[in-house]
Design a protein around this nucleic acid. Structure first.
Length: 466
RNA sequence: GCCCUUGUAGCUCAGUCGGUAGAGCAACGGACUGUUAAUCCGUGUGUCCUAGGUUCGAGCCCUAGCGGGGGCGCCA
């Protein structure tokens, strides 16, 4: 009598044969047979594949509605699941009723039954989730997020929510968006030259966070192992395939961890994400493997099975200066490596993920632990082929006097970080952590080349539509 | 911010030497078919990004602007 409501994913399984079911979704394509019925392919996002519907001409609304269903129309179909009479699918649904929720006029509906370029689909960000590739990206992104939580939860990390609005304005992570409730129109009208932030909401300047690390450290230095997972904002006018103004970042922070432990964790973490995507999203990953990045799955499997190369910065410089490769930028000890250098190391020299560590202290932020050589700090970057830097982290400086000296060295006002220094003042412990850009991880796993295509609604300079 | 590249039909693109715009796909109509990016036949489609300029004449050449894409820097 009453039919069981199933997803397309469930209905495609042979064990559904014989059941009376209901599915709801969107028409991907319709093929008419003059023998007196139509094939409808329905997708509901539960998986990449569609469910084939047999809609017989004797259905009440066959001529009036079903025969004019087009790509994008929404329907509910009830009927009997049968073994498919055709090739390409195990099951099909023989409709007893087809209810049309909404039509999609083919003259005005932008999506067609054909391939669209990613560039074009960015103009229709509200509809691109209805395409095969963006559906697959969404499912794999979800899988990655789930893996991240599982990975940390299994190891007794606490999920901590660090603030999105912050007052720290020089964490060394770049330009920030200012948060204010001041009436900018009124200020412009009055031509006020100097703003009194005492009048602002927080009675001082406030910003959107560029990192939850400093706050994360306070919880790690009480609860042991924690991680954050939230939105992050950078106001740099970056115009590349791997930068966003708003992105999601995962930042684990661990008390009693040193650099080596940090590297071990980062390596296991990347491997876990890759392994889960391959095993839990085989159909979606196959799409990327065939249509987006040939050889992707094999390459990821190699990453899972490999041991990451761990290379001190100084040795990296030696390799780069001695390799005979011509670079646009000169490599010399003491300056930051350019992305062309990083890519050479991970893509050509080692052909494997590489963890670079022990960077010159002059080019790294004040909070990184200073080595005894007085020249380097215990920072690390994980580089992967195609994407470049996917993780940046360090062992933190936990010696108060060294930290204060570093702040002074870099011209950072220690008084603004009084609470951060307190962690070193009271019961200080060695600790370490890193940040992983979620979207870069999604790029790495899916092979999608533009970061704007792995987040539902990308924010970048000049773009906040949708 | 810098550099390169691109803008022509709903989509992807062609357009020669500067001479007044075309193909495939989609859509629509028909035929055919347990089909599956179905197939076959037929039909329609334009602010050639915008504004100037050169020219008898500009999709094409020049200038400026706007939009898209890519590279670099900043980083995750």
């Amino acid at each position: 009598m009453s039919s069981e409501k199933l997803s397309v994913k469930q209905a495609r399984l042979p064990e559904c044969i014989g059941k009376t079911i209901k599915i709801e979704g969107w028409v991907r394509t319709r093929r008419d047979s003059k023998a007196g019925f139509s094939f409808l392919e329905i997708n509901d996002g539960s998986c990449l594949s569609n469910l084939q519907i047999i809609a017989d001409a004797n259905l009440a609304n066959y001529e009036s509605q079903i025969k004019t269903l087009n790509t994008g129309a929404s329907v509910a179909v009830e009927g009997l699941m049968k073994e498919s009479g055709g090739k390409g699918q195990a099951t099909e649904l023989v409709a007893k009723s087809v209810v049309v929720y909404g039509e999609a006029d083919p003259e005005t509906y932008p999506l067609q039954k054909k391939r669209h370029s990613f560039e074009k689909l960015r103009e229709w960000a509200h509809l691109r989730s209805r395409t095969n590739t963006f559906g697959a990206v969404a499912r794999v992104r979800n899988c990655i997020c789930n893996s991240i939580h599982q990975f940390f939860q299994e190891q007794e990390f606490l999920y901590v929510h660090t603030p999105i609005i912050t007052a720290s304005d020089c964490e060394g992570a770049g330009a920030m968006f200012q948060v204010t409730t001041l009436d900018l129109d009124k200020i412009a009208e009055k031509e006020i030259k100097y703003l009194d932030f005492k009048q602002d909401f927080f009675q001082r300047r406030a910003y959107l966070t560029v990192s939850g690390q400093l706050e994360g450290e306070t919880y790690a230095c009480a609860l042991g192992k924690i991680y954050t997972f939230g939105p992050t904002f950078r106001a740099e006018k970056s115009n590349t395939t791997r930068h966003l103004a708003e992105f999601w970042m995962i930042e684990p922070e661990m008390a009693f961890y040193e650099l080596e432990d940090n590297m071990d964790l980062a390596e296991a973490f990347i491997k876990r994400i890759a392994k889960d995507a391959i095993t839990l999203c085989p159909e979606d990953m196959q799409l990327f493997n065939e249509h987006v990045e040939p050889g992707l799955i094999e390459a990821l499997q190699k990453v899972v099975d490999s041991q990451f190369v761990r290379l001190p910065y100084t040795e990296a410089v030696e390799i780069l200066t001695g390799c005979g490769q011509k670079f646009e930028y000169e490599v010399k000890w003491g300056s930051d490596l350019q992305s062309e250098h990083e890519r050479y190391l991970t893509e050509q020299h080692f052909k494997s993920p590489v963890i670079l560590y022990n960077y010159p202290r002059k080019i790294k932020p004040f909070y990184m632990y200073c080595n005894d050589d007085e020249k380097t700090v215990r920072g690390m970057d994980v580089l992967v082929p195609r994407v470049g830097e996917i993780i940046g982290g360090s062992q933190r400086e936990h010696r108060l006097e060294v930290l204060e000296a570093r702040m002074a060295e870099q011209g950072i006002p220690a008084e603004d970080y009084w609470w951060y220094s307190d962690l070193r003042r009271f019961g200080t412990v060695p600790h370490a952590g890193f940040g992983l850009g979620l979207e870069r991880a999604v790029q790495f796993i899916t092979g999608m080349t533009n970061i704007r295509d792995v987040i539902p609604f990308p924010r970048f300079p000049g773009n906040v539509e949708f």
